[in-house]
Design a protein around this nucleic acid. Sequence first.
DNA 1: CCGTTCGAATTTTTT
DNA 2: ATTCGAACGG
Length: 771
Amino acid sequence: MLEERGNARGEPGSEDRSVTGEPERGGPFQMAGERLVPFSGMERILIGLDADQCVAVTTTEGPVLVVAGPGSGKTRVLTHRVAYLIGSGRARPWQIVAVTFTNKAAREIRERLGGLLGTESAQLVQAGTFHSLCVRILRRDGYRIGLEPAFTIYDEEDQLALVKQALRDLGLDPQRFSPRMLLGRLSRAKNDQHSPSDLQSMAQSYWDEVAARVYERYAQYLQRAQAVDFDDLLLRTVELFTEYPDVLAHYQDRWRYLQVDEYQDTNRLQYQLVRQLASGHRNLCVVGDPDQSIYSWRQADIRNILEFQRDFPDATVIRLGRNYRSTPQIVAAADAVIRVNRQRIERPLWTENPPGPPIRLLACWDEQQEAEMVVSEIDRLVRTGNARYRDIAVLYRINAQSRSVEEALVRRQIPYQVIGGVRFYERKEIKDALALLRVLVNPRDWLSLRRVLSETAFGRGIGEKTLLQLEQWGQRQQCSPADVLLLLVEEREEAPALAAATVRRLRELGGELVRLRAAMVEHPASQLFDLALERSGLAARYRDASDPTERERWENLVQLRSVLERYDTVPAAEGLPLFLEEAALVAAIDEAEMSGDQVTLLTLHAAKGLEFPVVFLIGVEEGLLPHARALESEAELEEERRLFYVGITRAKERLYLSYCSSRNRFGLRERCLPSHFLDDLPPDVVEAGSRASERVPRVAPPAGGHAGPVESSAPVVPRLRAGQRVFHPAFGDGFVVAVREQAGDQEVTVQFKRHGTKTLLASLAKLVVEE
DNA sequence: CCGTTCGAATTTTTT
DNA sequence: ATTCGAACGG
């Protein structure tokens, strides 16, 4: 995001400069390096690509669909395609758009492109997420649909606050109408391009009715605050293009070649946007993998990829099935798992890579032991020189799972980073400071003003009542509460019927805001930040606190300031909006630090598009993967399986899958069963003796009703399987970690609760199977 | 109007 | 276990 500052507004001026500044053929390819015979541009760009990849790179005109399996060189194709477009003279860098799923992916494409073409060209290519692209469009042209360039972007917390406010206005109980659920409905409505009145007329139930009325108020609030939510960024851009064909024409003319990555996870609005932008030249290349579609809960619509050929009948379809990333064992496991899905186009996936170690299953007591096993294996791999910390990732379904692993890593003093979780920009103190800056940039943002009033000393003496007065008063004057404050300072307005002391406070506050806004024009962002923090009392509150957690919050604010400093080359009035945009649109993964040598912990969702030599996928249990909340429908279950597939395919060489037999949830211990997804792993790619299937009797999959949950026979010497709980007369309770078949007998490795791990012969050990 | 305290829900994934 | 809202006392 940062590196786009120079041309973020997309003014024509920057284009003109670069037309003359664009190096001629040969210039970008001087890096061809040690070769004696200089490459022509094309050779350098196409070298090392396989036949299919080559077609994907060189089919530049017209619609192209690239169905790319995991590890098939998707990013490589995308990057080389852009390089080819430029190198061949078909397009100038700024005429090319590469839409990525995260800012990090955009950054990576630009970096790789820099290696192929030189950084100047690479910087001019328009690479970013749908959302950041839309921000740029709306900042420039949004005024046409009533959006000032200083508009604020609301995050989910802000959205929830608005929904709750709307519910309060309507006299409805937020307990009865879950704001979260309502927000989901609004998001769906927006993605279907339904207006509040559409929703109203389609309403089938009281709930629908409520949703429609909440939506109406919600939209009003956004407009009044000159704010947009994530969906609006897309929706309002589509609106802009629909209502102002000349604006659309401008972008169609400018952006002649469109590339869309992770196409399987686009939603209908994004598709609409793509169609609008591509409808003139039709140079549209989408790259995706239906098997890796894992964002349907965010309205991603798999139809976008499945129906691409219907919408673009002349599309060239290219399939990349060869995996360059993983060992044959990992590829075979992934293929076997994904094959079970019924809603799927069958597709080959193979690799020529040399075999690696088998996939290992780790059966554990609980998450503490799971973490121990993972961490000691990490330690072993690093000690034996099989991996560096940075080669290793621990993947999980939900963020809460990182905790036990973190604790174990801290105990062993192993460096690590957690991606996601409570994100930096979502911390309370950060949001307080951001609210302050938002109000200065966009005084109409009353939600942020409200936050400033309730969370900082600026609000001392001003409570809910007064704020309500301000709002009502503002509405009568057709202006925002902050405007009212400004008017009060100028004494151009009679004060509302409030106590004299309150009016004095309001005037004071108005004065503070006026001064800070004036400072914004003269000082760089970081200085304004200091000033705002001092004046609002936020600085004193955190900096001078004795409570260590409060002091930690101060550290975070200091860190925030250092981010702001990157915008200090221009006055805050210009720099702040860009900074606020970055703050609103950073993805969890964007914050990943890839330079240090540390283990990476992240969710399966965040791991999309990444690869690691060593992957631990933990918590492969029923209820977790698949998640208990995703068992409503076959479609949801299939998405969970795709998630598992995504996890498996992140691994290049070593893959470990772990599960527990009990786990703490909501403070209580709960029993867990291994995920039935494990049953689909081919036996020959999993380490012998650690097979999970056939082991624990289980409830049948939802469609088939319930199977008998009890094993049929109970032999005198029980047949043991990994994962079983056992009791030993001397060692007590234990857990079967592994079983090795041994000429009519079994050699069992048992982890005892009290006595550590022992390897025993089943015929002699008098083990009793529990349950 | 402000701060504290208690009770309750809450967690699936995130631009 | 944490966080959010309601309720209460200052």
